[in-house]
Design a protein around this nucleic acid. Structure first.
Lengths: 137, 137
DNA sequence: TTTTAAAATTGTAATTATTACAAAAAAATG
DNA sequence: CATTTTTTTGTAATAATTACAATTTTAAAA
């Protein structure tokens, strides 16, 4: 993944983040796995490749990436913060049956009220995905 | 507040919830304090009036009310679940400066994707309220 | 290269919201 | 009044996240 690695390195540099091995690894995981993972998901996946990696590093990295707008945090799941590398505005659907979170297009874009300096907008739908809907009917 | 009490009692009955003293108290608090409070906020306010009340009762009650669609849970704040008695669709703004959460009208209503059986939609704006915007500028 | 300073990472302990659960109290029913 | 069901309580457990000091790594300076 020479190509990906250098793309990620550039992205990090442009955001003012030193491209350490761990930071690149987190970015690569998020780029490759578009599942809106939790910090724990990322940790479990990366500890295999980097056995000395600490959970705190994951949290540190995610905070930094979020602060520099390289990743977006999603608060759709009460128990865990989810992370999304796609920073282009879109909606999220969470299935209350199987827990999957997937992207949805944002047809109607809501606008924040006048006077509010908005830095982040989230559109969340909760309900049942097609599979779970059929099972429960 | 005879009038309010009976209104709340009716609302609960119609939702299939037995109107116990504590349940009415939680509903009354949410009706009177439109601040999208946390469970802890509600507990701190009600323990004054009902000194024997347990935190667990607050959680139990909020779960029940939420399940029966008498209150809506808001996932805007990573640390705490917020509760809103206003079940009419509207957006929420959270100020990252002072932490206040306030309602905003929902001009453009986003639609869930086809095939998704949506039971809840949330539109959240994060940023700086007018006061905090001015302070930080 | 060696020394020094800064940044990144680690590991453990603390924090904190929420949940689990069994016991006690209260309310409803016969 | 006796019995059953519901509600409430209090404590303990859970689990995600944060705090923080120590260690390691990286970068810069001499």
């Amino acid at each position: 993944m020479q190509h990906n690695a250098s793309l990620i390195t550039n992205t990090l540099r442009m955001a003012g983040i030193r491209p350490s091995v761990h930071r690149i690894a987190v970015m690569r995981y998020l780029t490759t796995n578009r599942i809106h993972p939790t910090a724990e998901d990322i940790f479990k996946a990366l500890i295999v490749e980097y056995p000395t990696m600490s959970r705190t590093t994951i949290y540190n990295t995610l905070h930094l990436l979020s602060e520099k707008n390289c990743v977006r945090t999603i608060d759709i799941d009460k128990n865990n913060t989810r992370f999304d590398i796609d920073t282009i505005p879109h909606a999220h659907c969470m299935c209350t049956g199987c827990g999957i979170i997937f992207d949805a297009p944002l047809t109607n874009t809501p606008a924040p009220p006048d006077g509010f300096k908005c830095s982040d907008m989230q559109v969340l739908f909760k309900g049942l995905c097609e599979k779970c809907k059929d099972i429960n009917s």
